[in-house]
Nucleic acid binder design. Structure first.
Lengths: 126, 126
DNA sequence: AATTTAACGCAACTAAGTTGCAACAATGAT
DNA sequence: ATCATTGTTGCAACTTAGTTGCGTTAAATT
């Protein structure tokens, strides 16, 4: 499954990602687009955009879902398995373009790593 | 706040952690103890046990809360900021006694790191 | 045993995310 | 351009993790 039709709603959602380079939580998106579309539509479009490798998702500090634009993904391979950074002051979430090497773990095969770092962001830094 | 009284319910919850060395999700715990106590009680006891540094919590792959016994914590300092491993086959979650070094990030101060690794556990490994 | 007050059970609530279905609209064919 | 097809949307109702308020119960202390 993926995005098949270029609807108004899809364009509106895409626009939100194009104007903001940081990640957006679904909650924020639903709230921000409540006049444009139903929350069900937001959830469904995000699902499809992720299938298509256009955005990727991850969980913020409360276990709520966040989305951000992908840089080097396709529907086949989601390469964007970078860490994410959430500011504990302003709540903003960003993708970090760094590589965190995961040590080998005996008798276990790590396939996915989900790393959420929390602290003070650039703007909230003392 | 913390555990002030040694009630039957507290002992039952503690017993669950003593008989199982891997982590337990709140959902499982509520279900497993439904004959012993109310789910509200489970949530409240876990909260207090965490405050006291007896257990620590983290989020599993669906954003659901998990708890595991602490090894070197106190109510003042939660030292148990190790990574967790969740098996994608059987769903089991374990604490990993390894250290994942987080690289310094320019202009940001990392205070907490939440690392969830997913893959095949010892038992489900091919 | 009486008193104090933390802890408990219960029911009702909140909020994120999902589902089913009828109505609508983007796309390709005519 | 119009029609038919079928993917997409809105709506309402639902599911489920987690929380809250409050009256009752039961630890701990005297």
């Amino acid at each position: 499954m993926g995005v098949l039709r270029k609807t108004k709603s899809v364009e509106v959602v895409l626009h939100e990602f194009s104007k903001d380079s940081s990640a957006i939580s679904v909650i924020t998106l639903v709230e921000r687009l409540q006049l444009d579309m139903n929350k069900t539509t937001v959830y469904r479009i995000l699902n499809k955009l992720e299938d298509d490798g256009i955005v990727h998702s991850f969980l913020g500090k409360n276990g709520h879902k966040w989305y951000a634009k992908c840089h080097n993904c396709s529907s086949a391979v989601h390469k964007d398995v970078h860490p994410h950074f959430q500011c504990i002051s302003c709540g903003k979430v960003e993708c970090l373009e760094i590589n965190v090497p995961i040590p080998d773990i005996p008798n276990r095969k790590v396939e996915v790593s989900q790393i959420l770092l929390q602290g003070k962001c650039e703007a909230c830094y003392d």
